[in-house]
Every structure is written in C-alpha cells, then in structure tokens.
C-alpha cells in the first residue's frame, strides 16, 4: 500500500561466487530457516542477533554482492519500522527517561526500547538475507527450488509465467504513464489546479488499468495458444531435478544446525538471565 514499487529491476546479480554456485534448494531452505530463526528468537537476544548478523555479512562478503550493497538495499524496506515506534512509549514497565513535548511528559520505557530494537534488528537481518538470496539466485533457479520444496507445480508454473511477463507488462505500464504525461498539461502556476479532480484522475487511471488488463488478457490468450501448439494439455509437466550433491547436503545440514544453535542460545541465555 506504499507507493514504492519503483525499484523495478531484476535484483539478480550474475556474478561467479561460492554463494552463486550453491544449489538453489540449499539457498532457499537456509534463507527461510534464517528468517524463521530470527522470527522465533526472543526479544533482547542480542548475542544471537549478532551471530545471525555475522553469518549474513559473511555470506554477503562471500557472494561478491558486497556488504555495503546488501545493507543499502536492505534499508529500502525499513520505513515500516515507524509502525513499531509507539512500543517505545507504551510498553509496560519502568521508564528509562521522560521526553518533554510541550505540555506532555512522554515516558520512554526500558522494555519498549528493548522490544523496538529487537524488532528492528530481526526485520533488518531478515531483509539482508532475502536480499542476498535473490541477488545470488536467478529466478528460474528459485522456481526449481520451490518445486523441490513442495510448492504445487501449478503455482510454480504461474510464478514462472508471472515473472516472465512482469517486466514486459511493467514496461507497458511505464509507456502508458509516459503517454499520459505527454498529453497532460501541467502549468507551473501556483494555485492552478492540475489535471482535474481526484475522481477524474482516478477515472483516467482506472481506464489505464482497464486497458492494461485487456492487453494482458489478450496476451494470455495468445500464450495459451502457443502452449497448446506445443502440446500443453492443462497438466503441468517439468523435468525432474537432480539429487543434491554430498557437499550441498553437508552444507545444508551444517547451516540448519547453526541456526538451531543460535535459536537455542537465544532462549537459553534468556532463561538464565531472568
């Protein structure tokens, strides 16, 4: 619901690195495991967060994407953190300090700050690993990995079609936006209302959406024809995937053990401290 869909390019960076070469199934499972671990860690498990961060940064470095690049991209989605800010003031427990805002005295709660920082770190760590995953894995490989993980074939095919036509349709949408800009007069006179009422602008946009939809449906029909011409019969068939190699299995097991270790560490240390 934010208007930030404009970072539109394939995030995959075609480099050659150990992370790139890793089997996509291993990468997808480990990335999901990483994010799940971050989610399941208790509030204030700083040591575990740090270990996860170290793992993420090491992977970023190994992947050739560069830590700085990954950090930059992972910050893009952070504005949502504002939604967590109120917890700083509303959490239960003693206050740490009190902000004076005019007539109001707003207490900053210890527990609130801990919770806020925890959410911030968990979210940030998850983002970094997601950025590394899509930066080092081409989407077709991700599709194969999803299939191996049991995502229904129909869904995999749909994701594939979607991704294939996404950029094409986005280009089309951008061309329509340009055409609209070229036709709309936008005088830079202060106080002059530009482009009619909100309802009118929404209507123009609605028509553009409609037009885009028509083109989309027509393209869908032609694609269906092209599929049928080559034997498509409504069932989704794909070539089988090769089994995981020994080193890949070892890495997968090691990675999962590491994550479980971090999770245990987080909960055990919490139990000890309290």
């Amino acid at each position: 619901m934010n208007a930030t869909h404009f970072h539109f390019h394939d995030p995959y960076q075609p480099l050659d690195s150990p992370v790139h070469r890793l089997d996509p199934r291993v990468k997808l499972i480990l990335a999901l495991g990483f994010i799940l671990t971050a989610t399941l860690l208790p509030v204030g498990a700083w040591l575990s967060y740090a270990l996860l961060g170290a793992a993420a940064w090491m992977t970023a470095h190994l992947s050739g994407l560069g830590i700085r690049n990954v950090l930059r991209r992972s910050v893009l989605a952070l504005p949502f953190v504002l939604a967590a800010l109120p917890v700083v003031f509303t959490a239960p427990g003693p206050s740490w300090l009190t902000l004076s805002l005019g007539p109001w005295q707003i207490p900053v709660r210890v527990e609130g700050v801990i919770r806020f920082l925890s959410v911030l770190l968990k979210s940030w760590l998850s983002l970094q690993i997601a950025v590394i995953l899509v930066g080092t894995t081409a989407f077709p490989d991700l599709l194969a990995a999803m299939r191996a993980m049991g995502v229904p074939r129909f869904l995999v095919m749909t994701f594939g079609l979607m991704w294939r036509y996404l950029f094409l349709l986005v280009d089309e949408a951008i061309r329509m936006l340009r055409a609209r800009e070229a036709r709309s007069i936008a005088p830079e006179v202060p106080g002059h209302r530009v482009g009619g009422t909100l309802a009118w602008r929404a209507q123009v946009t609605g028509r553009m959406v409609g037009t885009l939809f028509l083109r989309t449906l027509e393209r869908g029909e032609r694609i269906y024809m092209a599929m049928v011409a080559r034997g498509y019969d409504g069932e989704v068939r794909m070539l089988p995937m090769p089994p995981l190699s020994g080193p890949d299995r070892a890495l997968l097991a090691g990675g999962l053990l590491f994550l479980i270790g971090i999770l245990l560490l987080g909960w055990v240390s919490r139990a000890l401290f309290l």
């Binding site: 095919m157 749909t158 994701f159 079609l161 979607m162 036509y165 939809f213 989309t216 869908g220 498509y232």
Partner: peptide, 9 residues
C-alpha cells in the same frame, strides 16, 4: 495459464 499473466498484469 492466463492466471499467471493476469497476476503480472
């Protein structure tokens, strides 16, 4: 197959 294209749309 149209579903995937519409989703992209």
């Amino acid at each position: 197959p149209v579903i995937g294209v519409v989703a992209a749309g």
